[in-house]
Amino acid sequence: MSTTGSVRVAPGVSRGPGDHAPRRPPPWRRASRPWLLLAPTLVILGVLLLWPLARVVNLSFQEYGLRQLASGETNYVALDNYREILGSEYLWTVVLPNTVGFAVACVVLTVGLGTLVALFLNMLGTVWRSVCSTAIMVAWAVPAITGTYVWVWLFDPLNGLVANVLSSLGVIDPGTVNWFADRFGFYSIATLNVVHHGFPFVAITILAGLMTVPVELYEAAIMDGANAWRRFWQITVPMLKPIFAVVTILSTIWDFKVFTQIYLMPGGNGGNAEVFNLGVWSYIQSFAQGKYGMGSAIAVLLTGILLVITVVYMRTLFKEEDR
């Protein structure tokens, strides 16, 4: 990155030979400054999320039903909930493959599509870029619940647009198939829905990032004869690495815990246990079945998986950053 700094001059700051040395604060203030800056965040997160999270963990060691909830009593069963979850075939053959497969597909497609769209938008003139990014924003702004109903309608096996087109092409006979009942069909539609709802975030963020990359870098590269492909890998990717990293990490976290889009699809609210992911399973155990301890244990399991993934991501990320 050292090659880039030299070409930048911040506005409003003159750079003259007679200027004095930087005014650096005393060491104790330097040491406390990051903590001061972090303090509001830590207070809010600690009180509102970390403490409740600790309660979720606490609940996961209990057999906790509506009765306990109403009376506030505790009922510890040590690791029973975890033993039951981890010992169940259902977790390993259905829920975990659903969760992981779905999340991986969504992350790859969301980040891939989002990046492509961002690069494309970056090539457009101001007017069309605004038009397209506003359209993309519409995709993001449509409430997940409404979006899900639209996708379900689109793929309605009887009256939906897709079924109509396929049947007029003679591919299917409407009324004989129901892709919602099939695990793969169900998740294909869910993936489309989640990618459609998720790619705007990636596209807008990467576009914002692209716009901070100095044009001179590309101009210099073009003069050196680098083609678009090489410019992307040699300038865009390294410059935007932190942004790509955050987009990927956050997408991973969200796509692992997708709930609304699965729960609202036919069968996703409990009728078809073949299509649960960890989030839906946890919710159904807690709220539908009144087994809050079990639901909490599933939630903790999901959190644990994400924690491991994130730490692995960050290892690679920081290795390069710290050099």
């Binding site: 309605d156 096996p157 009887l158 009324g175 004989t176 198939v177 129901n178 919602f180 009942a181 036919p266 069968g267 009728g271 078809n272």
Partner: peptide, 11 residues
């Protein structure tokens, strides 16, 4: 119809 296997009452 095959579609009805996942219908609820509203559907």
């Amino acid at each position: 119809t095959a579609a009805a296997s996942t219908w609820n009452e509203a559907d």
